[in-house]
């Protein structure tokens, strides 16, 4: 597959209003490509692995940008950059988990231009798929990663269905843990989608990572106040400290009742095609204190049901150890 340094011939639209962008998305449908920070886009287009006819650049739309306090939490515009999220006093005060997750995305340069909407909507990073091979996710009839010779060190432990790619987004795990709501708009109206339902696995939609339809734009992310100021834990394990995707990550929110955990949400990244809730861990953590002993007691629950591939068994102890570390006092 050839790789180019230049963009292909594609029409660029830079609407200034959301309605104009929605009309363009409606007009071009699957031939249109929504552009945020471009960090997922340019690779696809320069590799000639995707062939949209229209780029719809959302960065000029003021209404999609910024962080606003709402009656019940905050709303972050989809084109708000990761750097702006990291620097936001409001988010630092109430939802530091998202700050920690955003701080671990890629590199400083990428965080300067990468947007929250783009980070949660980015496509799978499976190299067979990104290479332009006609795998299941590309509409084909085979998974190259899950074959006897397939290199699947970074791939899924859970919920694979034909495709074994994982969700690459660091902020996605934090948003699922914080019970965020994604706001999707089309010319036909607006949809509020729970973050947990926003990300879809291959059993449901093998060619999409999210439940966004081709005529919809993710306009904002709302985070309710119910977890504001809670105890947070985020950790990402990757081969490199910067500019790398998670091998496994964990985002945890906990409501404490004195010294014990009253309520929690544990979400792992890098182990399934969607942010993966550790429901058994959450149940077991209730009433426990934060300690090494508690961590040891519940860590093994994290990997129950895992189906490792040829080269990713190491993710099982990695998941368990991340739960242990989240449970430390």
């Amino acid at each position: 597959m050839p790789s180019y340094d230049v963009m292909p011939d594609v029409q660029l639209f830079q609407p200034a209003e959301v309605d104009d962008a929605l009309n363009l998305v409606d007009q071009y449908g699957k031939d249109g490509w929504i552009l945020g920070g471009g960090q997922d886009t340019y690779g696809w287009l320069k590799d000639r692995a995707k062939h949209p006819t229209a780029l719809i650049d959302l960065n000029g739309i003021e209404a999609l940008h910024g962080i606003r306090e709402t009656v019940d939490g905050i709303e972050i515009g989809a084109t708000t950059t990761l750097r702006e999220i990291i620097a936001s006093p409001l988010i630092n005060r109430d939802f530091e988990l998202l700050v920690r997750a955003a701080s671990r995305v890629a590199s400083p340069q990428i965080r300067n231009v990468g947007t929250l909407g783009g980070n949660v909507s980015q496509d799978a990073r499976c190299w067979y798929y990104r290479r332009g091979l006609a795998c299941y996710r590309a509409g084909g009839n085979i998974c190259y990663a899950d074959s006897p010779q397939g290199m699947n060190r970074e791939h899924a432990l859970f919920d694979a269905s034909r495709c074994v790619a994982i969700s690459p987004s660091d902020t996605a795990t934090a948003l699922v843990a914080l019970e965020a709501t994604m706001i999707a708009r089309s010319v036909n109206g607006s949809r509020n989608i729970a973050a947990e339902d926003f990300f879809v696995g291959p059993a449901t939609h093998i060619t999409n990572m999210t439940s966004l339809e081709s005529d919809e734009i993710l306009t904002a992310v709302q985070i309710p106040s119910r977890w504001a100021g809670s105890r947070f834990y985020f950790e990402k394990v990757a081969d490199r400290d910067v500019w790398d995707f998670a091998l496994v990550s964990i985002a945890v929110v906990m409501k404490m009742d004195g010294d014990t955990i009253a309520k929690s949400r544990f979400v792992c990244g890098g182990v399934a095609c969607t942010p993966y809730r550790l429901l058994d861990v959450e149940k077991a953590a209730r009433g426990k204190t934060l300690s090494d002993e508690s961590g040891d007691a519940i860590a093994a629950l994290a990997s129950q049901g895992a189906k490792p591939l040829n080269y990713n068994h190491f993710k099982i102890p990695l998941m368990e150890n991340l739960v242990r570390r989240a449970m430390r006092g």
């Binding site: 009839n141 085979i142 899950d146 006897p148």
Partner: peptide, 22 residues
């Protein structure tokens, strides 16, 4: 060619053969 409760998929057919099956 898919995972089931009884076996894990093999992906053992060539892509050309698989294409004919599909």
């Amino acid at each position: 060619m898919i995972d089931t409760p009884w076996w894990e998929r093999t992906n053992s057919l060539s892509e050309a053969t698989l294409g004919w099956v599909f």
